[in-house]
Design a binder for these strands. Structure first.
Length: 902
RNA sequence: GGGCUAUUAGCUCAGUUGGUUAGAGCGCUUCCUUGACAUGGAAGAGGUCAGUAGUUCGAAUCUACUAUAGCCCACCA
């Protein structure tokens, strides 16, 4: 084996082998227990970021673990066509050529986007391979591919026929830059330092004023959006507001237009806010729209698609950009004497989640999905426990949103996306919703084939999420009946970040239940967002993003995955900075070096046919009674296997990583490898080392797939053509196996206590500045003769670990004029032959005495408390008593020592 | 305005049904280049668990309030 682990070479080598040999491929026909996951499809325009890296590391850990555990495991990959995002990307490219999409025309533009997708759309799926994702690439899907498109058309048609899709003239959020409607949750509200303009609306019938004041009586209206003034069709006051009661029924003059508009009363108006008088612009404000509906007001849409003003805004403003128009209107109001004053105001302004343009509320004709009927069973599924959120607290947020759900605006004025399957008969005007283009009008009977009529398809496309919400079943072949759907639906786990619970998770729940009659997954695993070291969201504009590909280049994919797993917690966001990834890289190095150690000691391995009875390790049979250290490592290995399985079962990816890390590094490398170097029976020790190392490799594989595969082959655990991916994930040993090997908690504790003695001796060496290379004389005063005998059997081991020329083991409890440290196994003395710093030692002993006495005091307080004895469980009380006895014994020893050093 | 979450060592976080005098990694200090590994080894310092009041025999853990931070939802014109 090379001195250094070449991660790049290993990662480049293994991925294609895995993929090309179909190790990731899942087949329903192979039967067994299904475990399935669909990937949250990244945008086809996307490039891999830390969020993907975290999300997919979690999924791959779960998937590889399940696969190795014998489940028929499917992880289904794919990408999202990402309507607005993709269209924007291609439009930008066109702009560089000096063209707009309109110059190409719809068909050519869409063709161009497909062309773009073909050329660049594979970027992210190649980057996902760099991460090591074990996704079944043979099933890769795209939300806009033929099958998904068929599912979309079918779903739209069905919902329409069920009366759950309707078309209407409503206020929607409109992005002037993208030129499309947005759903409510696609609008991001951000704080804004703006102004509040106070405008006087003259009351009709009041007397003329002096110069510059055409009217004496005004109503004072405060607005943040003066440019919408030409669209006003009323001013409103609260019906209970006595200040303005006299105005009801009157009309006021809309400044700059001269139009008369009524003063109306509506509960919506807050008496306390502003002046208590609101201008009502039904076509440009969602609340005003509702007020307008209640009062039968006209709706005057004064804006064009691109955010410029139209002719209804008045000849002067027509064609002006909305911001220019704001300036112009404010100037004109001032010139006309209508502007009273301006105040600063902090409010919230909506921005497009895609391009960040300020969103306009605007009246337009759009398609909507009625959500309430779909939401109810989706709420029930989580309430009943059929579907579970991990961590559970997200269910509260889910309920909160689902209970207040609003209809979903699904039409988008884009060209890239699923065209709405709605057609209008040019002859009779009938609206026909149909999965495929109609040829005959169901109303007037006119046929398109003989030219009697033409069926015009709705120009709009559907919201991207309208295809994503079908992802768990459209990707498995729905609406066809398929084996995949039969076997893998519903999926087992859905793993995603918190930010798309509403966009995606909630809607998948609704679609799954409505169309498949079963929720699309059993567990919804929600993880946090990756943030920078200061806790800020990673973003391009802040320049604080870490590039996973760069990290893979520097530290390796295994390092990236392991470090992310180790530092991430499902309960909160993950803060990362570059240095964190050293953990994973260092760990890979450690694994490699431990492997090299075994490789270099190949001759120490038991030879074929050496035969034996006690235990079987990796097919090699060994002789003889296992030593305590050997039993300890086997016991620790068993604990680790159980722990990792248990933790992964609970989605505690981080704790699982820590458990493997600790077992590998502390138990195997720090202790057992050192033991093996001087083991009494080297073939047996190495045989055991080989066994636990192989188990550790498999425990680690879900986290670090590449280095584990590479090492497994280097060490000959696997032959060519085999893969660790399909190796069995270690479970715990059976009670029978444990009994046969003599693996007991007692022996485990004994070795831990022995290690404590070794550590204590090392501490003494460090404290007294003994040359690390020097061999010392050690005396251990065990508590009793039996323990002394036991320790004597460990003499060689103690000598090696303590770097001692002699280890004397006694149980006489005699005072020794040497520095000593108390451990569970008694007192460890280091012979310094006169070099003792009595004062320092006395101080140390005094400190320990004080600590121990304090401990005893706190236990006494408990034991003398009648309530404690009466209420606490017996085991706890007994434990306290045992502990106390030990402490008392220690105090006696310490007091003796203190006398010696006095 | 409503909801959720967090506050434990210098930093990032564990601490899952309340029960030894609170743990890990990184960082820091001291020592060590002995053939697996300096991307390493050994030892060590460092915390009155945000605050207050309660419940309890017993609280980092449960309750209330307070402070601070963050997130989500919501139409304050």
């Amino acid at each position: 084996m090379d001195k250094r682990y070449d991660a790049k070479a290993a990662e480049a080598k293994w991925y294609p082998i895995w993929e090309n040999n179909g190790y990731f491929h899942a087949e329903p026909s192979e039967g067994g227990v299904p475990y399935s996951v669909v990937i949250p499809p990244p945008n086809v325009t996307g490039i891999l970021h830390m969020g993907h890296a975290l999300n997919q590391t979690i999924q791959d850990v779960l998937v590889r673990w399940r696969r190795m555990s014998g489940f028929n495991t499917l992880w289904l990959p794919g990408t999202d066509h990402a309507g607005i995002a993709t269209q924007n990307v291609v439009e930008k490219a066109l702009k560089k050529e000096g063209k707009r999409r309109q110059d190409l025309g719809r068909e050519a533009f869409v063709a161009r986007v497909w062309e773009w997708k073909k050329q660049y759309g594979g970027t992210i799926v190649h980057q996902q391979r760099m991460l090591g994702n074990s996704t079944d690439w043979k099933r890769e899907r795209f939300t806009f591919d033929e099958g998904c498109s068929r599912a979309v058309a079918k779903v739209f048609t069905q919902l329409y026929n069920e009366g759950l899709i309707y078309k209407g003239n409503y206020i929607v959020n409109w992005c002037p830059r993208c030129g499309t409607a947005l759903a409510n949750d696609e609008v991001e509200h951000e704080p804004n330092h703006g102004h509040f303009w106070y405008i006087r609306y003259p009351v009709v019938g009041s007397a003329k004023g002096t110069q510059g004041e055409p009217y004496k009586d005004y109503v004072m209206v405060a607005t943040t959006r003066p440019e919408t003034l030409p669209g006003d069709t009323a001013v409103a006051v609260n019906p209970k507001d006595e200040r303005y009661a006299h105005l009801l029924g009157k009309t006021v003059i809309l400044p700059l237009t001269g139009r008369e508009i009524p003063v109306i009363a509506d509960d919506y108006v807050d008496r306390e806010f502003g002046t208590g008088i609101v201008k009502i612009t039904p076509a440009h404000d969602p609340n005003d729209f509702l007020v307008g509906k209640r009062h039968n007001l006209a709706e005057i849409n004064i804006m064009n698609d691109d955010g410029s003003m139209n002719e209804l805004a008045g000849a002067k403003y027509c064609g002006m950009d909305r911001w220019k128009c704001r300036e112009a209107i404010v100037a004109d109001l001032e010139a006309g004497g209508f502007l009273d004053h301006i105040e600063d105001l902090d409010n919230q302004v909506g921005h497009c989640y895609r391009c960040h343009e300020v969103v306009e509320s605007r009246l337009s004709k759009q398609w909507f999905v009625k959500m309430k009927p779909l939401a109810e069973p989706a709420i029930e599924a989580v309430k009943s426990g059929e579907v579970r959120f991990v961590p559970d607290r997200w269910s509260k947020i889910y309920f909160n949103w689902m209970n207040n759900i609003q209809d979903w605006c699904i039409s988008r004025q884009l060209w890239w996306g699923h065209r709405i399957p709605a057609y209008t008969c040019s002859k009779c005007g009938e609206l026909i919703v149909s999965e495929t283009a109609p040829t005959k009008c169901p109303k007037c009977g006119a046929s398109s084939t003989d030219g009697q009529t033409v069926f015009d398809q709705d120009p709009d496309v559907l919201d991207t999420w309208f295809s994503s919400w079908l992802w768990p079943f459209s990707t498995m072949g729905w609406p066809e009946k398929t084996d995949d759907l039969d076997f893998y639906y519903p999926t087992t786990d859905l793993v995603t970040a918190q930010d798309i619970i509403f966009f995606w998770v909630a809607r998948m729940m609704m679609a799954g239940i409505h169309f498949m009659k079963k929720p699309p997954f059993k567990n919804i695993v929600i993880h946090g967002i990756v943030r920078d070291a200061q806790g800020r969201k990673m973003s391009k504009s802040l320049g604080n993003s870490l590039d996973p590909l760069e990290l893979i280049d520097t530290y390796s994919a295994d390092a990236l995955r392991f470090s992310l797993a180790l530092i991430t917690s499902l309960d909160c966001d993950t803060k990362v900075d570059k240095s964190k990834f050293e953990i994973g890289r260092n760990f890979a190095t450690k694994i490699w070096n431990a492997a090299r150690f075994m490789e270099m000691n190949r001759e120490a391995m038991p030879q074929e046919g050496s035969g034996g009875e006690v235990g079987r390790f990796d097919g090699q049979t060994v002789f003889g009674q296992l030593s305590p250290d050997e039993q300890h490592i086997l016991y620790a290995c068993d604990l680790a296997c159980r722990k990792v399985n248990d933790l992964l079962e609970k989605y505690r990816i981080q704790d699982g990583a820590l458990a493997v890390y600790d077992f590998f590094w502390t138990q195997i490398c720090d202790w057992f490898v050192e033991y093996a170097k001087d083991a009494p029976d080297k073939p047996r020790a190495f045989s055991i080392l080989r066994d636990v190392y192989w188990k550790a490799l498999r425990l680690l594989h879900p986290y670090m797939p590449f280095v584990t595969e590479e090492v497994a082959h280097q060490l000959g655990y696997l032959k060519d053509g085999e893969t660790i991916l399909k190796a069995e994930f270690p479970k715990g040993l059976s009670d029978e196996e444990k009994a046969k090997l003599g693996l007991t908690e007692e022996i485990y504790d004994f070795v831990n206590a022995k290690r404590e003695a070794i550590t204590a001796l090392r501490a003494l060496r460090a404290e007294y500045k003994v040359n690390p290379a020097a061999f010392v004389k050690v005396t251990i005063d065990a508590r009793d003769a039996a323990t002394a005998d036991r320790l004597r059997a460990e003499e060689a081991n103690l000598k090696a670990f303590m770097r001692a020329e002699a280890v004397e083991i006694v149980s006489d409890g005699a005072d020794r004029a040497m520095p000593g440290t108390l451990t569970k196994l008694g007192t460890v003395y280091l012979s310094l032959e006169g070099l003792i710093d009595k004062a320092a030692e006395a101080k140390r002993v005094a400190a320990e005495l004080e600590k121990t006495r304090g401990f005893i005091k706190s236990i006494d307080a408990k034991l003398s408390n009648e309530n404690f004895v009466a209420h606490a469980p017996a085991a706890i009380v007994e434990g306290q008593k045992t502990k106390r006895a030990e402490l008392v014994e220690n105090v006696a020893r310490l007091e003796k020592l203190a006398k010696l050093f006095a």
